[in-house]
């Protein structure tokens, strides 16, 4: 809900809840709560818990009715890691302006704040397999986005940048002395960053998107003053997608999504976390071919049927959809998935 307090000041808030397999578990959270003051069209500020602008779809990833696909390309928008990027407690400056000489328009956002992950998200769930149980996970997050509506009608291109410094507080079974029970445990990233480049082209009923994201995660896990492991993850993902509205009620889509991770570990536990540098191995990548159909039964009600044909399962220190807890027999090089999803919006 939101309301205008004055001509330039608007306030609002929204709740969010989900239960996706073992994630979310119906623990509602504040999705966003914002006071927004727009001085000029080219300069405004907003503060509170603010949705983070990152690439084409980060801030709208929950708005299922906007797209043909049931799942956004997981190489760039992993739904299990939604918390990592979805919002920050802080502020934005933003604006948009038309360029002279018919050069289109620019929109910018710069932000800084505190990221706070749900302990029911993917990072905490992956850590739980090692008997590490987070009570909090978050930290400073800042960055910006610049997008250009080009003079070519329907073509948008942009770039986003995010920097973050994350600390997780947990309790864990001390791997050096398992009989001693739980001990305080922390996971500290020194300077994570993500760059994202994107483009979107729409022409009538056709939409083509492409994005590339590189995320670098540099984490140090320790208990008391003992550094257990230092991990450097280099996560790269990109996709190309196309969708076409065949009729008023039917839209079809296809995307190819490619995701890979290299991971290098050091510290006391490094022997248990061998380097992963060969991205051609199934353990270090996920290549996903997706076909999708969306049927709009009503304007407010849609059904989506989607096939995923995946190669690789990417299993490293950084999660991406495949978790050993729900795959006790281990992973296979190829995985097919059928997604059927229905949504209402009003």
């Amino acid at each position: 809900m939101s309301t205008s307090v004055t001509d330039k000041l608007r306030v609002g808030a929204q709740l969010y809840d989900r239960n996706l397999g073992q994630l979310g578990q119906y623990h509602p959270s504040l999705d966003w709560a914002v006071a927004d003051y727009r001085f000029k069209s080219w300069f405004g500020v907003r503060g509170g818990k603010v949705k983070t602008t990152l690439g084409l779809y980060n801030d709208t990833q929950d708005l299922d009715f906007l797209r043909t696909f049931a799942l956004l390309p997981q190489s760039v928008y992993p739904t299990d890691l939604r918390d990592a990027t979805i919002a920050h407690l802080g502020g934005d400056v933003y604006g948009s302006l038309s360029l002279k000489h018919r050069l289109g328009g620019l929109a910018y956002t710069a932000y800084a704040g505190h990221r706070s992950d749900s302990i029911y998200g993917g990072v905490a769930y992956l850590a739980a397999q090692y008997q590490v149980y987070f009570s909090s996970y978050g930290g400073l997050q800042y960055g910006g986005d610049l997008r250009w509506n080009t003079p070519l009608k329907g073509l948008l291109i942009g770039i986003s940048r995010m920097n973050e410094d994350v600390t997780g507080k947990a309790k864990a079974i001390n791997p050096l002395n398992p009989g001693a029970g739980f001990v305080p445990y922390s996971a500290i990233s020194k300077a994570d960053w993500a760059d994202q480049f994107y483009g979107e082209y729409t022409a009538g009923k056709l939409r083509i998107d492409s994005e590339y994201r590189r995320f670098v995660h540099d984490e140090q896990d320790q208990t008391a003053d003992i550094v257990l492991v230092e991990i450097y993850d280099d996560v790269r993902g990109w996709y190309v997608s196309g969708s076409y509205r065949v009729t008023k009620r039917l839209a079809l889509g296809y995307y190819y999504s490619r995701y890979s991770v290299t991971s290098v570990a050091g510290g006391l536990l490094a022997p248990y976390a061998p380097h992963q540098t060969d991205t051609s191995l199934p353990a270090n990548h996920v290549y996903d071919k997706v076909i999708s159909a969306r049927v709009d039964l009503r304007r407010c009600w849609n059904v989506k049927v989607e096939g995923h044909f995946m190669n690789g399962y990417e299993y490293s220190s950084y999660p991406n959809g495949f978790y050993p807890q729900v795959n006790p027999q281990g992973f296979k090089p190829n995985t097919n998935a059928l997604v059927v999803k229905t949504g209402f919006n009003f």
């Binding site: 929204q14 966003w32 914002v34 927004d36 801030d59 709208t60 708005l63 009715f65 906007l66």
Partner: peptide, 13 residues
């Protein structure tokens, strides 16, 4: 869809 996007992301009305 455009207006709903603004509404549900807190960016407009």
């Amino acid at each position: 869809s455009y207006y709903q996007t603004l509404l549900f992301t807190g960016r407009g009305f």
